[in-house]
Amino acid sequence: MLGPNILGTGKDLHVEIVQGAGAFVCGEETAMISSIEGKRGMARNKPPYPAAHGFHGHPTCVNNVETFANVPLILANGVDWFRGVGTPSNAGTKIFSLSGKVRNTGLVEVPMGITLNELLHDIGGGAPAGSVIKAAQTGGPSGGCIPADRMSTPVDYETLRKLGGMMGSGGLVVTDSGTCMVNFAKFFLGFTQHESCGKCIPCREGTKRMLEILERITDGKGKREDMDELRHLAAVISRTSACGLGQAAPQPVVSTLRYFEHEYISHIVDTRCMAGVCRSLLTYHILPNCRSCGLCARKCPVPCISGSKGEIYVIDNDRCIKCGECNRVCPFGAVART
């Protein structure tokens, strides 16, 4: 069905594959069309939608590769065959990119309607030894996080959306007890902020200010009002942004505020990161079982550890850069991190 004069019909079908230049925003359909036209990858106003006015003004069908890949199979095997898998409202299969804190990572194709628990435990093999799954972020960098206690619900478009996640690209990043959810949200917001096309103000400027608030919080300089301001900015950004990138960008923050508000509070009020990830919030001190071998003081890059034979060594926390080297090198487990 490719090439000129298909089956003598006089109709041609040519396929040309265009390599993108790597901008995340070019996953947004109108930005991608601009990019393929040789223009800067920036979102356009919709309507008109690409189906009416797309590539060089022509009606354009934009879909994910996964969708297109299903088409020949459905044509060959029929609709009933396709509907034989999945749920009535979400037929077929879905490919997830399973990554993060599970034993088995990689691309997995599962029937729609499978539960996250089945996905993460039966296929993913559960959390690595000694840790517990905390949450899963679904749908890519702008997807929301779904906490472990909601994972018995089926994976389909509606349920994910209701829980604050999304199907999106099929990304599935698993976090465990060693993940700080504030830091996790900050990481993804940092990505979408950097990848914003820069056109509309709420996305370009708003995500930057949200990111700065998150940086403040993970630095132990957060204020209680910061959580309200994050929610406010998130609402304005998702309601007013021009394209899907901006509309979804605050979701990692919104969903972690919804399910892991206590982690934000502990950063802000107690200046503590329970997962021990946010460096500025850590303190190191030396316990009485110190044998004054002096290894920590020698390895300290600042250096900010002092002491002498027969004494318990002392860390000057004003100068400490929280690198954790002392904790790692102490042969007696005498350097504690809190």
């Binding site: 800067r40 950097h194 914003s196 096309c197 820069g198 056109k199 370009r204 400027e205 995500t207 930057k208």
Partner: peptide, 28 residues
């Protein structure tokens, strides 16, 4: 404030194309 009107007038009205947006995100 990145309204883009200078870029558009230079491109659409004058056909000169001396200005455009560069970089992404906050650095635009």
């Amino acid at each position: 404030i990145l309204c883009g009107k200078c870029v558009k007038v230079c491109k659409e009205v004058q056909g000169v194309y001396a200005l455009d947006f560069v970089r992404r995100g906050f650095s635009t």
